[in-house]
């Protein structure tokens, strides 16, 4: 069974079966990443282009490593914002990449909808590695993988997503996937960070972190964009940390076996206390490790190599 899609742009349209297939495929690649020789020939002769219009170290590196471990040829194309000709249309970008005979394009773009626009314009498979505030499907899939790895069933799973949901593509992708899988989603943050109508995606909204954490099994922290202090989403980092920072005390409000997640990079002492980030309940580094295996699975499924 394969993934009957040309592209992976968003988790909103994926079925539960498709999500499960991706997670199961990642299992076998997780095993590969544990070997001494961490390489399989699955994508030999295929070309993966990492097209990153936004600076990103970890996502790009994770995709690059995943593609290389599958023996694909990898090209990193990261037009810095200054060198991108202002106003080059997405269609032109698409045609250029297509001319390079790329099998798979991994796109990171500051504009929501960019991956969708690219996918329409090219025959290559497009994987969305983050488009504006819209979605970051592979991050959510690696989050799901990490939750599943801890033996937590999705049905009825109580998950708190904490922070700037309004500007978070990670949050949107996770909300879509977790809602489909039957989880109970609690979104927590100041009202300025919880966008209008977000409940319609299948989540409950909380303004009080202590209340929201009660009994949850997964605490998913979002990175605070410190520069948003200036545009009035929150008065000071100090007050934000006091109201919405995850401390060891607060973790105790959650289920005793609760795990703490963060897509990184973390702001220690702001949204997450150092002792929480380094605690046994933290799975932050498992997320990073699983990211490679999950992306291997996705690249493998998208390539149609199976």
């Amino acid at each position: 069974m394969g993934l009957k899609r040309k592209d992976l742009l968003s988790l909103a349209p994926l079925s539960v079966d498709e999500i499960q297939l991706i997670l199961e495929t990642a299992d076998s690649f997780k095993e590969v990443t544990g070997r001494e020789i961490k390489k399989v020939p699955a994508l030999r002769g295929r070309t993966v282009v990492n097209l990153f219009f936004e600076p990103s170290t970890r996502t790009r590196t994770s995709f690059e490593l995943a593609a290389k471990r599958l023996s694909a040829d990898v090209i990193n194309f990261s037009p810095s914002s200054s060198s991108v000709v202002k106003g080059e249309t997405l269609l032109d970008t698409a045609r250029n990449i297509e001319a390079m005979q790329a099998d798979i394009i991994v796109l990171r773009h500051p504009s929501a909808g960019a991956a969708e626009a690219l996918a329409v314009g090219v025959k290559s498979s497009v994987i969305n590695a983050g488009d504006g505030w819209h979605e970051h499907p592979t991050q959510a899939l690696l989050d799901l993988y990490t939750i599943r790895e801890r033996g937590l069933p999705f049905e009825g799973l109580r998950v708190a997503i904490v922070g700037d949901v309004a500007h978070s593509r990670v949050a949107r992708s996770n909300i879509h996937a977790l809602a489909k899988l039957g989880a109970e989603i609690r979104l927590v943050g100041p009202p300025t960070m919880l966008p209008r109508g977000v409940e319609k995606l299948g989540a409950r909204v909380y303004y009080n972190l202590d209340e929201a954490l009660r009994g949850v099994q997964v605490i998913m922290m979002l990175r605070l964009q410190l520069e948003r202090q200036g545009i009035a989403l929150f008065p000071t980092i100090r007050e934000y940390a006091r109201l919405y920072g995850l401390t060891a005390e607060r973790v105790k409000l959650a289920d005793p076996g609760a795990i703490v997640m963060h897509p990184g990079p973390i702001n220690r002492g702001v949204e997450i206390a150092p002792e929480v980030a380094d605690s046994l309940s933290s799975v932050i580094l498992d997320q990073v490790a699983n990211g490679v295996a999950v992306r291997m699975g996705i690249l493998y499924l998208m390539s149609g190599a199976n």
Binding site: A12, A112, W133, R196, G197, K200, L201
Partner: peptide, 15 residues
């Protein structure tokens, strides 16, 4: 327009 659809699409809204 700002609302549930702008939230879902991840587009900045105008209320």
């Amino acid at each position: 327009n700002e609302g549930a659809i702008s939230t879902e699409l991840g587009l900045p809204g105008m209320p």
